[in-house]
Design a protein around this nucleic acid. Structure first.
Lengths: 341, 341
DNA sequence: TGTTAGCACTCACATACGACGAGTGCTAAC
DNA sequence: GTTAGCACTCGTCGTATGTGAGTGCTAACA
């Protein structure tokens, strides 16, 4: 059976109506709403075909129809229209302002996403592994303790304290800082190889222990970010959707959102490389979210893919709006970071 | 009417039974459970008195009784026994390990609290306002941009970037750093007054603009911490308690927990200065939590009151266990920080 | 006077039943 | 191919009814 224009229009009408009401939609409603000049009986015949094709389903006999996962999939793949965000929403987004710490920027962004879409949002921290080391500074703060400041491109700052066995003089500290900066600045994490490490340690002489500590701290900073933090916001929004808010479903979703680690698989790329990825129902690699849909996008801080943002909502979410919001957020985030830089 | 020993025992039995089951408890149950050798009829007479005193109430006529807020209040004030944590729980807590950033330590602590108690937990970041400035370092990272590192006692590190109008030479930067450190180190935020500021600016000469920026950053760091972040964990735990998990109640509580700012009033001290503070029902200054109880405690990082931790659960929460867990956490946190320092 | 047994009474909860209505599936006519 | 008509399905809602846990009260008892 083939999917002609009218069937498409009917499926479209079903999805749009169900998006708004959350109730199964019947042939009479479609007849009035779709713009097609046909009677409910005709619609019923077509719906019978759509059901046979697995695009819609009835919750029970003699009820209206709701889209199946397959129906939604067809919709987002072939029927969804690109939508531009109405201006009042964009202006809200402009609230993104200069913040010193990336972390706060991301949390703020998650919050805005949740507020604008009325779904739950999630944001991963950026991965810096392809970033370059920009600046290292060791300072004596206490006796027996050094403060190391590591700056990566993108002005990501990491701090670590190092315990040292014996005191360093001002002169020695200066020399050590020069040594580290001269040899490491401008290198990406992959470029810092054993050869370079050995050379630095040799030059550092009796301070090779400190150098080891510093390199460990750099490695640690990278490791932390190759497993970047996940931020979420708007979890309580799912209570607005009856199909998700019954006891155990809501509980599981909110638990998953709090246990942020378990969200990681959601962000993993599946083959096709679009900038927007939509997962529906069972396509989501997290058990507790099989009643949801997830839309994810990548954002860049500067050059190269850097992190992910995503929206979690009911399958009947407003995909157009979500996609438009995500795209807009990506754009604004890029702008914000450029200004920051 | 006075509260004799038997009435107390009955109230105690009601509270304990209700804590476990969440169901109204009847005279028959108490007769068997309380250890008192009296018939249900006698218990009923006593319960009638307790009801008159406002310590217990019936959800409806011909139902068992549940404690009122007043009943819980009496219980926690006069009848609750100090309890020590069974060792298996303490060992879990020992997982607190060295973490570089205070933030992560606090989040980890919130998580442990929620796991151990099965209630929701909240933790405020520390307030540093009484802390002293320990170390300041300005470094040139990009041209036209300085990185400022500010270390407070307790090894709290803050980073800020400053834009500068004209380039500083190495010499000038060194002088500026010396100037700042010599004049500011060891001072608490309150001690940095206008006199000191004016003197530094004078000495800084043409760099007085940078000095202003640095002082602003310091003030900003303090402002941020006089309004410290609130961390929460275990929000989904409230789904385990039927009296809280019906639709709107759960939704409101979880929203409040996510909107962390609104939790702040909960931590405010009410007159009596105990290390543990228990708020029951309407005593909680947050509307959405009027069906809950909140137990809060103060923790110290080093010297002086510094932050708060708290547990949110149903009114029938296990107060002994919660108090014991909080005390234990306070203790362990102090230990952890000592080691860290 | 305090305690207890007995008993009528209350009320939430569960079950059953019927009415209702939204919506379908099918058939026959256009 | 489209439509009207109609029987049928099935979830929902309101009502009635029974059940049982648990009380309140009274009267008897120690």
């Amino acid at each position: 059976m083939e999917l002609d224009g009218r069937k498409k229009a009917i499926l479209n009408a079903i999805i749009r109506n169900y998006q708004e009401t959350g109730e199964p939609v019947g042939s009479r409603t479609i007849s009035k709403l779709s713009g097609l000049q046909v009677s409910p009986a005709t619609i019923r015949n077509e719906m019978s075909d759509l059901r046979e094709m697995g695009l819609i389903a009835q919750p029970h006999t003699s009820a209206g129809c709701i889209p199946t996962d397959k129906g939604y999939r067809l919709y987002v793949d072939e029927m969804m229209e690109e939508k531009h965000l109405p201006s009042e929403h964009r202006s809200e987004d402009l609230l993104i302002k200069r913040v010193d710490r990336v972390e706060e920027l991301l949390m703020h962004m998650a919050k805005l996403l949740a507020q604008n879409t009325k779904y739950a949002s999630m944001v991963t921290g950026p991965t810096y592994s392809s970033n370059k080391l920009k600046f290292i500074q060791l300072s004596r703060v206490d006796s027996g303790k050094l403060l190391g400041v590591i700056v990566l491109s993108g002005n990501i700052v990491k701090n670590s304290f190092f315990d040292i066995d014996r005191e360093l003089g001002d002169e020695e500290l200066l020399r050590l800082n020069l040594l580290l900066n001269n040899n490491l600045n401008g290198l990406s994490m992959e470029e810092i190889n054993l050869g370079i490490i050995t050379r630095i340690k040799e030059e550092a002489g009796e301070f090779s222990g400190v150098v080891s500590d510093v390199l460990d701290a750099i490695a640690g900073a990278v490791a932390e970010d190759s497993n970047p933090k996940v931020y979420t916001s708007g979890a309580p929004n799912i209570f607005m959707y009856p199909e998700l808010s019954d006891g155990s479903t809501a509980s599981e979703i909110i638990s998953t959102l709090e246990e942020k680690e378990s969200l990681r698989p959601v962000f993993e790329d599946r083959g096709e490389h679009h900038d927007i990825q939509i997962l529906i129902g069972d396509e989501i690699p997290v058990e507790s979210m099989k009643d949801c849909s997830v839309v994810t996008a990548s954002y860049e801080l500067e050059g190269g893919v850097q992190g992910k943002i995503g929206i979690i909502g009911p399958k009947r979410m407003n995909y157009e709006k979500v996609v438009a919001t995500l795209k807009d957020t990506m754009f604004q985030l890029n702008e914000a970071v450029k200004k920051d830089d």
